[in-house]
Write a protein that binds this DNA or RNA. Structure first.
Lengths: 271, 271
DNA sequence: CAAATAGTGTCTCTAAGACAATATCAC
DNA sequence: GTGATATTGTCTTAGAGACACTATTTG
């Protein structure tokens, strides 16, 4: 009878066939672009970080940042590391969105991807500043559903526009999966990963614990509302939004002045 | 300049270090045990399938059914296959609950696990019948939280009782993770996987699309309610439950008779 | 003052919870 | 009738949405 110690000493995992494992990260930010009138509040836009592929396969196309899992780290640590390598910002929030493991999803071979969503604040991006190398850019995101359950994903940065069409498939447990019908300019199955990530982000934003990570430590309730509206792609009446987040925020005694209208009180997140 | 074709032909994934990948499945069933009085409705119990480990490591302890990902299948297909091999039932519903990838989680080496929840109906188990080999059993599940955020997991089958204590850690996006404080009789990190699976199941059961898979095609509203109550570990007033599920079910014209009380109408799931 | 946003009060409507009452069987 | 479950009606309440109104700044 073999002991556990003997068993483990003679055990060799490398005898068995196994896949390569990567993580891909959908890092989201909300950008605020100034308006023509000095009085108006900035316009917000949900943005997603994409990286231009320098090598094969899908050379020249845009992809989610990501990379191979290294020995000694968890999948989550891998996702954090990859995001930081690309943005020089360590994201605060990260959440798994699914495992993509179709055998033919990567032409290089058997590679399964663990997809994550992460949230980066505009503030931290501006501070740490990405090299303005044009191989990593924050693309504006549009993601809409028509009545037949078809989704259109559009990502734009300057003159570059990436498009994808997807159909939703209702799976069990009330979950939805996305199948790519058309994909233009996006590498691998990343259009489907992005669709799943956006869906997960919107779902998560329903509870008001998620949205704070898009903003600096102190923020106005209106900017918080704009974040929520931008993510969910809806508009909310201010009175109702304020009532709903009131349990999640704390007043400070600071105000934002100098915008040609009533100053707004700064709030912070309630612990 | 190398072409994509040349690149792919010379590309060798096996040069790189990579983990073994498994899936572990928390397959749940709801058993109905008859009462002493012929009038009373059966008592329900949430049950989880566990397999006694025949070999090292953790020989003799109980573990979730699972196994290595094979080339050519998706992670989800692997989970379905493993469940079917163990129960001889192909589950209808399956849902990912997370990836467990701590480097030291398996003494055999670098093995990451994709955890799934699946639902098996009691009916299908009774039909296909598991071999009553005592190496695979449906354990009754208790999972409770105290005020300090500590969870106690107890799994029992006959004289065998497995216990674990876990603490919850709130991570971002309003998600919770479980850390094992104590684990008795359960292999690997499976106590944490089971805790995550139960949490995911309870969360999913909040929308009334999940619970039907525990029952045969035709069911009474009371049995549906018992399923919901058993999973969520709460009690619901019948009037309210009926109102809430009314949009998800359709009447049939069949009744269940012969139980010493008013016959119950059979319903089916609305498409 | 005009333009613009900040902030509050309150009405309505709906869905969930509580409670009460009635209906229908097998023995 | 008795014990048990099945089924329905309705009151109450909490929360979300709609709307109207007031407050405060800068050019």
């Amino acid at each position: 009878m073999e002991s556990e110690k003997e068993f483990l000493e003679s055990y060799d995992l490398s005898k068995y066939d196994r896949p390569s494992v990567t993580t891909d990260v959908a890092a989201f930010m909300i950008s605020s672009d100034d308006q023509e009138s000095y009085r108006k509040n900035p316009e917000n836009r949900l943005r997603l970080l994409l990286v231009k592929r320098g090598g094969h396969p899908f050379k020249g196309m845009w992809a989610l940042p990501g990379g191979f899992l290294q020995r000694g780290e968890t999948v989550e640590q891998c996702a954090l590391r990859e995001t930081q390598e690309e943005t020089s910002v360590l994201p605060v929030s990260i959440m798994p969105v699914g495992v993509f493991s179709a055998p033919d999803r990567d032409p290089r071979g058997w590679i399964i991807s663990n997809a994550y969503v992460s949230i980066i604040s505009e503030e931290s991006v501006k501070q740490k500043g990405m090299d303005d190398a044009d191989d990593a850019q924050w693309f504006g995101v549009s993601f809409d559903r028509d009545d037949a359950g078809n989704y259109r994903l559009t990502l734009d940065y300057g003159d570059t526009e990436l498009r994808a069409l997807l159909t939703e498939e209702k799976t069990c447990f009330g979950r939805t999966m996305f199948r790519i019908t058309e994909s233009e300019g996006l590498a691998f199955d990343h259009a489907a990963i992005i669709a799943a990530a956006l869906t997960a982000l919107r779902e998560a934003a329903k509870n008001y614990d998620t949205i704070f990570d898009f903003l600096p430590e102190r923020f106005t309730l209106t900017s918080l509302q704009k974040v929520q509206e931008t993510i969910m792609n809806v508009s909310i009446l201010p009175a109702n939004f304020r009532r709903m987040v009131s349990g999640y925020v704390e007043e400070t005694d600071e105000y934002v002045r100098g915008h040609g209208h009533r100053p707004a009180k700064l709030y912070k997140r309630k612990k």
